[in-house]
Computed example of a mutant assay.
Amino acid sequence: MDSYEDLVALTDKLTSRFSELSDSIKAAEKRMVEIGALQTHINNYSKTRKTYEAYLKSGYSKTFFEEHRDELMLHKAAKQAFDQLDGKKVPSRHALHEEFNRLLVEKKQAYAEYRQVKKEMQEYLIAKQTVEHILGIDRHKRVEEKKQQKEEQR
């Protein structure tokens, strides 16, 4: 590193990459939760299908409904979850399992890089703060200047 500007550029690059990795990990985790919920609904739908069919044959009997309330409510919740797929076909258990495993691998890889980038970012941010302190650079002034430059570019 030859200059303060290089240090600033590197810290900005590391901070940006850190944010990208963090967003990627969060997106993978969110999708994994969605997959888990969908798998649960698929399983519940399969388990309760015969009960629901019997309920239909009973002519929507209130007595039958009360006797099998829990199963019928699970079935209804599963159907509602499938309806929220916006016309998409309900994925197979196998496809969901594969997607979950792929996301898990991607998350683990991203997390390994995330830890490394976080460590480097923190080290360079400390170095940058030290240089700013030694050189008497006012960080607040720099932040305001950056904001002004961005506004001028718009």
Rank of each mutant, 00 (worst) to 15 (best):
A37G: 09
A37M: 12
L38H: 02
Q39K: 15
Q39D: 10
T40S: 11
N43Q: 15
Y45P: 01
K47M: 07
T48L: 06
R49L: 11
R49M: 01
K50L: 10
K50S: 11
K50E: 14
T51F: 01
Y52Q: 01
Y55G: 02
L56A: 07
S58A: 04
Y60W: 00
S61G: 05
K62Q: 07
E66L: 11
E66A: 12
E67I: 00
H68V: 02
R69K: 15
D70E: 09
D70P: 00
E71C: 02
L74E: 05
K76H: 15
A78K: 01
K79N: 12
Q80N: 14
Q80R: 10
F82V: 09
F82T: 08
Q84R: 13
L85E: 08
L85R: 04
L85N: 09
D86K: 13
D86M: 10
G87M: 04
K88F: 08
K89Y: 06
S92K: 05
S92V: 03
R93W: 00
H94Q: 08
H94T: 09
A95F: 04
L96F: 05
L96C: 06
L96P: 03
H97E: 04
E98W: 09
E99R: 12
F100G: 00
F100K: 04
N101E: 08
R102N: 10
E106A: 15
K107Y: 06
K107F: 08
K108R: 14
A112H: 13
A112M: 10
A112V: 15
R115G: 03
V117M: 05
V117I: 15
K118I: 02
E120N: 11
M121T: 12
M121R: 15
Q122A: 12
E123L: 05
Y124N: 01
L125G: 11
L125W: 11
K128L: 15
Q129S: 13
T130V: 12
T130G: 11
V131H: 01
E132D: 11
H133M: 12
I134P: 03
I134Q: 07
I134Y: 08
L135D: 02
G136V: 08
G136A: 01
